[in-house]
Design a protein around this nucleic acid. Sequence first.
RNA 1: GACCCUUUCAUCUAGUGGCCAAGGAUAUUACGUUUUCAACGUAAAAACAGAGGUUCAAAUCCUUUAGGGGUCGCCA
Length: 460
Amino acid sequence: MSVVTRFAPSPTGYLHIGGLRTALFSWLTAKHNDGTFLLRIEDTDMARNSEEAKDAILKAFEWVGMECDGEVIYQSKRFDVYKKYIKQLLKEGKAYRCYMSKEELAALREEQMANKERTRYDGRYRDFTGTPPAGVDPVIRIKAPQKGTISFVDGVKGEMNIAATEVDDFVIARADGAPTYNFVVAIDDALMGCTEVIRGDDHLYNTPKQIVVYNALGLKQPNFYHVAMINNEQGKKLSKRDGATDVMEYKTMGYLPEALLNFLVRLGWSHGDQEIFSVEEMIALFDPNDINKSSSNYNLDKLLWLNAHYIKEASDEKLIGLLKDFGVDLKGNEKASMLLNATKERGKTLVELAEQIKLITTAPTQYDEKSAKKAFKGEAKEILSTFADMLALAQPTTKEAFHAVMEKIVEEKEIGFGKIGMPLRVSLMGSMTGSGLDEIMAILGVSETIKRIEKAIANM
RNA sequence: GACCCUUUCAUCUAGUGGCCAAGGAUAUUACGUUUUCAACGUAAAAACAGAGGUUCAAAUCCUUUAGGGGUCGCCA
């Protein structure tokens, strides 16, 4: 039988980083088995526009290269289906109308709390046959088993046994007739043919409820996998204060999707000692049964390291395309390849890479105070001036040729490399950091190099 | 409060009773390389939450304590 997985977000606006990991796990499971990955929007109660949410999620999926198969499914458009099943359950006596008011329910909860019990509906209308109280629109509750345990095997957590007393006759349709979450999820998962349901472990307690629905309706249960949450570095719930939670923020921060996916797949899953996974490798190796039980903490350092790795690996062509969004257009620039080679290794993100490139391509407007003080002293002026003359004479064009001129001045003047290197660097870049000088000069060319040197001398 | 899940270096993790006086990666520190910064290379430091058991043998099995997380809606 073909594997079907799904991602089922509620429309809250954007795709959360934790949601992306769950989606990734589902997507990988589907792809690994040549199966289908579906997207379903859970909007049974949200007044918000779920079109927008769908677009935001699809956009994020598109960016990371995860496609969902088939049409996006909206629960809000499937009320007829759910109502049919509600009617069926009512008719079969597996569900019933409950006339308890919200106030009564609140009072019951308070009482149970006071008695140190788990709060639950007490089933008072379960076998009600009398005259219903006037003026109350009833909700519909499903009959959950009153004895025994509800058991299922979770692919992550192992065997789960939940006492039937923990699961009450929960509401499947509100007073206005709208079906509720646990009811529609079970129906949709079954009707969509989901074979593996991979979701956050905040849904662990919903599973027995959904199993009640599967059983009442005679639907086939999928395999469940409940993935522990991602926490922040302190082990607390991930919130906006811990940095970016919206997947698309990572794009604007200059992360490559392959780095983000590689980072996320290693949160709660591993394959021996392997750290670097291409998407193809993930698909080939991923198995939801290998997902770790415990929650993991979000750690930016590793993402940064992975991103640096994927930037170094990326082709010039790819980087040129990516860099356009970061204010650097290298298309058609014959020095593009040299520029990227010179900067690739010191940009951990595309933002940093773009900065490094701009640092070379734009002449310094001011000189870093500390660096200038250190470099522009002693004979610096004279050395630079001689160096400029030598450049004008030699007219080097390659990195090697520029390097040769540097070596020559070192030899002739009997000075250390630093004596020319430091002032030259500050003249060209404005500060003491950056790529190799010979590389930079080769990119700039002789005339621009001399121009910057002269400007620096004038400022000394 | 009740119920459930979870606990290996700072962080992600390997580990399914003997191969573990616990391995890899990131971060950290030192050294090397270099005209600078980074990258790179080499090295160092760094963990089985605590207590009891079972066993010839426990990170691994059991009990229990503690920490962390989750759930208890006519939200999803």
